[in-house]
Deep mutational scan, measured.
Amino acid sequence: NQASVVANQLIPINTALTLVMMRSEVVTPVGIPADDIPRLVSMQVNRAVPLGTTLMPDMVKGYP
């Protein structure tokens, strides 16, 4: 099973992602692959992302 990117904390709308905000976890449904975490750094979320939420491609501005 492939690990996905999961919010490690509440991420407010328009926040630029940092490594501490994300963790990898095997979840269903599958979200953004954990391998993409380095690419996500400094990209902004377009909505508030609660703790434990799987990051989906449509939540991150400019992804992929």
Rank of each mutant, 00 (worst) to 15 (best):
S24T: 11
A3Y: 09
S4Y: 03
V30T: 12
R39A: 12
Y63W: 14
A34Y: 09
T15L: 04
P12A: 06
V20L: 09
S4Q: 02
S42D: 15
V27K: 07
G31P: 00
V5S: 03
R47C: 05
Q2K: 13
L51K: 14
Q2R: 11
V27M: 07
K61F: 10
A16Y: 13
M21L: 06
A3P: 09
N1D: 12
L10K: 08
G62N: 15
S42G: 15
Y63Q: 05
V6K: 03
E25L: 06
P33M: 07
V5Q: 00
N14D: 11
P33V: 08
P12M: 06
V41E: 08
P33Q: 08
R23I: 07
P33G: 06
P64N: 11
L19Q: 09
S24D: 09
D35P: 11
V20S: 14
G62I: 05
I37R: 07
L55G: 00
M22K: 00
G31D: 00
Q9K: 10
D36H: 14
P57V: 08
L17D: 00
Q2E: 08
I32D: 00
P33W: 07
L40Y: 03
R47Y: 10
V45H: 01
V20F: 14
R39V: 11
D58M: 08
G62M: 11
L40F: 02
Q44W: 14
T28F: 14
L10I: 09
D58F: 14
Q2S: 15
M59D: 13
S4N: 00
I37F: 03
N8A: 15
Q2D: 06
D35T: 14
D58C: 04
L10E: 15
T18S: 14
D58N: 08
L55C: 02
I32R: 01
I11W: 00
T54P: 08
N8F: 04
T28S: 15
D35Y: 14
L40C: 03
T15D: 03
S24G: 12
I32L: 07
T54E: 01
N1Y: 12
T15K: 05
V6P: 01
V30S: 09
T28I: 11
P38L: 13
P12Q: 08
L19F: 11
T54D: 02
G62D: 14
Q2A: 11
Q2N: 13
N46D: 13
R23A: 09
E25Y: 07
I32K: 00
D58E: 13
D36M: 13
